[in-house]
Design a protein around this nucleic acid. Structure first.
Length: 695
RNA sequence: GCCACCGUAGCUCAGUGGUAGAGCACACCCUUGGUAAGGGUGAGGUCACGGGUUCAAGUCCCGUCGGUGGCUCCA
């Protein structure tokens, strides 16, 4: 006798088992028609699911009629169902294709499949696949679930012979389920079907709007040594409008892509003759980088850091001591070896393959492009004896490191092979650790605040309590973990503790920023390290006149200039705040007649340290504005006879499609100077037009 | 590294195995114009690179390099 509680708190009682659809029909014919699924006791289910006990029930409709938005549950049902339809369409076109696994994901769904060698699937097939899907949807065939006891189900799958489906079923059985379920798109035994847990929309006709998006490869079980699968991505929404909106968003995101903007705004260049993943910083991008470096440099000085410089290479032995070689050698450039050493090896009869082995094992004398800055900083620390009175020692360097990233991973500025970290290493006592961590966090907060990057979270990586792979004593770990927690809590951002995510040498605090497209980027990091002081046998003399081991903190609030600025370009869509903008103002003379006056304005700006140019081209002002706007110059200073007469300039600010008015020349220069010096905190130019200062 | 797709002027992109194209940018000329493209003329190419098939290759095939989307990886 089920008692069913609805979301509004009302209760319906039935004297026999009912389906979710029956309940919907009782509430109203409209709802029954609209519903595509149900949530029974918080669990997503088919509309046809039978209810024979007391439950809470929520009916899922494709979208909220008022807002036009779909719930996550509705999209889940639609996309999961669409994955089936796509799989059926592909199998119709290519009968040899074996299905593996097809779940909904954040912005759509995919289906992994095994494509036999004689079949080729490419994006040119999308139209045909979509046409086939369209047919299946038009046929409006019901999704019909049927179940079998595990044993019987396994026998059925064995008979069908798909190792992937057998594997899926075995996993379900291993996870404790004692029956297997299938969904037929139509009549079981007659129409297309797939082993599936469900749930689905009632029929194919309820899939609103869909699109096959892209083709990729994947590995079975995510294992690179396992079968290579083909993954077809698609997306589906409740209606065409939602799908179109999504596609527009993608287009918008593409326009913000730092690789596109980087070219358009001439921020950086990657040249295939230089090498993959190696960034050439062009003048414009270099300005942004230099400004950030100056900004962080001033904060470091305030926090008592010492700036150091170290070379790009170091002896192989150094990295054997630190443990970076050979542990990370697969992601390092190979060692640099002098040809005399090679000749020596050759004289000893060393073959090429033997040389290759020796390079791997590090049994050669050579240098490594540094994969990290810490060993060099450690050597600076260790070049002098230290008293506890000297600590903490904070050594900072914009240090360039090189890592051999896999070629397929390299992406614009965000994943590269050579990059410059805003790195620093703090050598301190156990007791100083907590304060030092708070100092690091403070720095990150200042940076994120200044750049208006407020969508970020903090991840505190702790040790896995069941593992003994960690360096350092448990009591030190306890203290360090507590210090990390306390430091993380001083930020306003949400933070999560993740056991098992610590490095083997110490706990860490990572900063994960979400960009406009919703992607997450790990940028800054703060890590506690017990391991390297041990490996390099670092010590300081304590108050007891005995040597003690210092603790190290590694920290890089930006992570690297490359990745940080890549994310920043997308964050600002290329429209950098004035203090960072490569070109802060451009003087636009109305005609040749005011070029001379414009040059005077320009020289005022330059004298005040403003990065400004003048557009003396033989164009109308409309064209000059357009060109400057495309380069996202924050302030356009238009000078015509009217302005020259009054010793003023007319100002147009980026993003405002008309001019703000005219201001006296010296007032403007002064305002720009103040705005830039404040790094955006003082919007002095805007304020000109709210005060009596304006002409 | 693996899979799919892609590589044509500085940029964005057209291009049926048969003479290499457009728009923007660039140079020169006309125009001197008050808030998102004034007009004209011109220059610009070993069609990524190396092989092959063909009477003939930007186009078809193979390889290399590079890019894009994923997968795997990221001290």
């Amino acid at each position: 006798m089920p008692r069913i509680t609805l979301p509004d708190g009302s209760v319906r009682e039935y004297d026999q088992p009912v389906t979710a659809r029956d309940v919907a029909a009782d509430i109203g014919a409209g709802l029954a028609k609209a519903a595509i699924g149900a949530k029974i006791d918080g669990e997503l289910a088919d509309l046809s699911a039978t209810i024979d006990r007391d439950v809470t029930l929520e009916l899922i409709t494709p979208m909220d009629r008022k807002s036009g938005e779909s719930s996550e549950d509705a999209l889940y049902l639609i996309r999961h169902s669409c994955a089936h339809v796509m799989a059926e369409a592909i199998q119709r076109l290519h009968p040899g294709v074996e299905l593996v696994y097809g779940p909904p994901v954040e912005s759509g769904f995919y289906y992994d499949m095994h494509v036999p060698p004689d079949v080729s699937l490419s994006s040119e097939d999308f139209e045909r696949i979509e046409a086939e899907m369209e047919k299946i949807i038009k046929e409006d065939r019901p999704f019909q679930r049927y179940e079998m006891p595990a044993g019987e189900g396994m026998r059925k799958l064995e008979a069908e012979g798909s190792k992937y489906k057998i594997d899926n079923a075995q996993r379900a059985v291993d996870a404790g389920s004692n029956e297997l379920s299938w969904y037929a798109t139509g009549e079981p035994g007659q129409d297309w079907e797939d082993l599936c847990r469900g749930p689905h929309v009632p029929s194919t006709g309820r899939i609103g709007a869909f699109k096959v998006m892209s083709l990729a490869s994947s590995y079975w079980h995510g294992d690179a040594d396992s079968d290579q699968l083909t993954r077809v991505y698609g997306t589906a929404f409740a209606d065409r409008k939602q799908l179109d909106r999504y596609l527009e968003q993608l287009e918008e995101a593409r326009k913000r892509d730092h690789r596109v903007l980087g070219k358009q705004l001439q921020l950086f260049h990657i040249d295939e003759t230089v090498g993959q993943g190696l960034i050439l910083w062009t003048p414009n991008g270099s300005v942004v980088r230099q400004q950030l470096a100056d900004f962080i440099g001033s904060e470091l000085q305030r926090q008592g850091y010492h700036q150091v410089f170290t070379p790009h290479i170091g002896k192989l032995d150094l990295y054997k001591t630190s443990g970076h070689f050979p542990y990370y050698q697969d992601s390092q450039y190979p060692p640099l070896i002098h040809h005399e050493h090679m000749e020596l090896l050759s004289d000893e009869g060393c073959s090429c393959s033997e040389l290759s082995n020796r390079l791997r094992s590090g049994e050669v004398e050579g240098y490594l492009l540094k994969p990290m800055n810490c060993p060099h900083h450690i050597k600076i620390f260790d070049s002098q004896p230290h008293s506890y009175r000297d600590l903490p020692v904070r050594l900072a360097e914009f240090g360039t490191v090189y890592r051999w990233e896999q070629s397929g991973e390299i992406c614009g500025m965000t994943r590269v092979r050579g990059f410059t970290q805003d790195d620093a290493h703090i050598f301190c006592t156990e007791d100083q650790l907590a304060d030092e961590l708070i100092g690091c966090i403070e720095l990150v907060r200042i940076i994120f605040d200044t750049l208006n990057m407020d969508d970020y979270r903090v991840r505190v990586g702790l040790r896995d309590p069941d593992s003994d792979k960690y360096a350092g004593s448990p009591s030190n770990w306890d203290k360090a973990e507590e210090a990390c927690r306390r430091a993380a809590a001083t930020l306003d951002a949400p933070f999560s503790e993740e056991p098992g995510e610590a490095a083997f040498y110490g706990p860490k605090i990572d900063f994960v920023v979400r960009d406009v497209i919703g992607r997450e980027w790990q940028l800054g990091t703060v890590q506690v390290d017990y391991n390297l002081p041990e490996r390099f046998d670092l010590s300081y003399i304590g108050p007891d006149n005995q040597p003690h081991r210092p603790v190290m903190v590694h920290r890089a609030p930006f992570g690297s200039f490359e990745r940080f600025i890549g994310v920043l370009i997308e964050h600002f869509a290329g429209a950098f705040p004035t203090w960072l903008a490569p070109e802060q103002a451009r003087v636009l003379p109305i005609s040749e007649k005011t070029v001379e006056y414009g040059r005077n304005v320009l020289s005022d700006l330059k004298a005040a340290g403003v990065r400004a140019t003048i557009d003396e081209s033989n164009e109308r002002v409309q064209a000059k504005i357009r060109t400057a706007a495309e380069m996202k110059v924050p302030y356009l200073l238009i000078v015509g006879p009217r302005d020259a007469e009054q010793n003023a300039v007319s100002i147009r600010a980026r993003g405002i499609r008309h001019d703000l008015g005219a201001a006296p020349r010296d007032a403007l220069v002064d305002a720009l100077k103040r705005e830039i010096a404040s790094r955006g905190r003082d919007s002095a130019v805007g304020a000109l037009f709210e005060t009596a200062g304006a002409v």
